[in-house]
Design a protein around this nucleic acid. Structure first.
Lengths: 263, 263
DNA sequence: CGTCCCCTTGAATGAAGTCAATACGCGTGG
DNA sequence: CCACGCGTATTGACTTCATTCAAGGGGACG
């Protein structure tokens, strides 16, 4: 009755945690050594750290660079005039924060650190290098951006029609798979370094109800969450209660035909 | 107390309704005559009609072309295994349905007509022509895509933290401004050719509650909605109750510095 | 040892959903 | 011309899910 969850197995814990971006891009296109080298170089030009709760970019800013998360978690959020906050995306290691700041000049939202983070700041010039010099890299970046958009759409679905339990379960499924892409799950566990209040802002629930929802998921034996560590004993089962369909993450090696070595 | 709504005046009813795409793109970059000509040509190669409620593309498909709405309204939606539907975007005349189908091969959602529509189907080849031949056009398409993503984010905010009244009001503000971009508002009125059930799927509310919410907005004198026509007597007032901040639509002529004639 | 942050729990309230009945147009065909 | 059916809009009564308010507990850290 549930759509196929063929690719629910965590993906490649092969990836080295130091190069989450390479891990991710390499999952879509087959990068040549030169490609990998140039990504690594551009992405290490300027590295910056932020403390938890610090803003990386703020609404209204006109950033001159793109940020890539190297370690830690961040989020994209918007604030209404009366202070209500909604997190509309989580950024995990390897995620590119905002490719389109280069075309939309003013930020229409903010990006904040959820935990202490390290980000690589890629300048316009560095970006042009990436996009121009190597076709495969440009394609990979486009793909990463497209997947981010797809995730954004799925969040709308999550907020629009899933109840609290499904919503939390869905978020956990997504984060678990995304973390597995960059080698950050081990066995059935991954880090979950955010507070219940953070989860509340991401799911549109109240902190109190997040707490109750987590207890419900625990009671059902679907998750173990303790000491900032999430364990999912049975991912299929969790996916089932979440009505989670991983297709929107486009994990299917869709771009593997774009092989840098096949010319 | 409300963020500046400087650009709340409807934009340029100058645009001819026959060329909504040109209207929109021309709002970002200044297109040369040759640019306009090539867009018009590519966009008129293959035109197709769909009846209301017909699907333009379905989840799982691998479309070989990009669709641009010429007339009528469509939507992007997702369906859960148990049949629950969530609309995650409205497409109005001039909107490009999905630039990234060219990189993400399988559709992770469907696109359906809300009213009878005419779409222009741009093939991969036509798309390459657009992107390759004229830098300005490529930039304009990127911009259109980026704005679409920004809108998607705002929908998440809408679903996550606004109550029913604010949510409906917000949707109306957005649609009104987007329609004004393509010359489809006259005075304080625009078409609203969708049913209350459609609005329900877009706002994550039940049809019954949409009805009550509409009555509430009418009672407050914020909208007149009758015979598929929406009239907003006081856009500022509606925007205020919606906590609507138009910045995410990026109406500010941000790309006007990209002038095709300034070389 | 106190303070702060985070998590937890309970009880009361409220917003939106569900169910069900009714009403209104509108086109179709008898 | 009228009866019928269908999709859409409306209304009322009841239920449910989630929020709010308020209080207490536990651990980390100065």
């Amino acid at each position: 009755m549930q759509a196929k969850v063929a690719s629910l197995q965590p993906h490649g814990d092969s990836g080295a945690a130091e190069t989450p971006l390479l891990d991710k891009l390499g999952r879509f296109v087959v990068l040549a050594a030169a490609d990998r080298e140039i990504i690594a170089r551009v992405a290490s030009e300027r590295v910056r750290g932020f403390a938890a709760h610090e803003d990386v970019v703020r609404e209204g800013d006109r950033p001159q660079h793109i940020s890539v998360i190297l370690s830690g978690w961040a989020c994209r959020y918007k604030v209404l005039a009366d202070g209500r906050r909604q997190v509309v995306a989580f950024f995990l290691p390897g995620d590119v924060c905002d490719l389109n700041v280069l075309v939309l000049r003013h930020m229409d939202h903010s990006i904040g650190a959820l935990t202490p983070i390290l980000v690589s700041e890629i300048s316009r010039a560095g970006f042009d290098t990436l996009m121009g010099a190597h076709l495969r890299v440009a394609q990979a970046l486009w793909w990463e951006q497209s997947v981010a958009n797809a995730i954004q759409r799925e969040w709308a679905v999550n907020l629009g029609l899933r109840d609290a339990t499904e919503r939390m379960a869905h978020l956990f499924c997504e984060l678990f798979l995304r973390l597995s892409l960059v080698g950050l799950v081990s066995g059935h566990s991954c880090e979950m370094p955010v507070t219940q209040a953070d989860l509340a802002e991401a799911t549109g629930l109240s902190p109190v109800h997040v707490n109750r929802t987590l207890q419900e998921l625990r009671r059902l034996g679907l998750i173990v969450l303790k000491d900032k560590t999430l364990t999912i004993p049975d991912l299929e089962a969790l996916a089932d209660t979440a009505q989670f369909n991983p297709n929107y993450l486009h994990l299917g090696q869709e771009g593997r035909h774009l092989d840098a070595n096949d010319r």
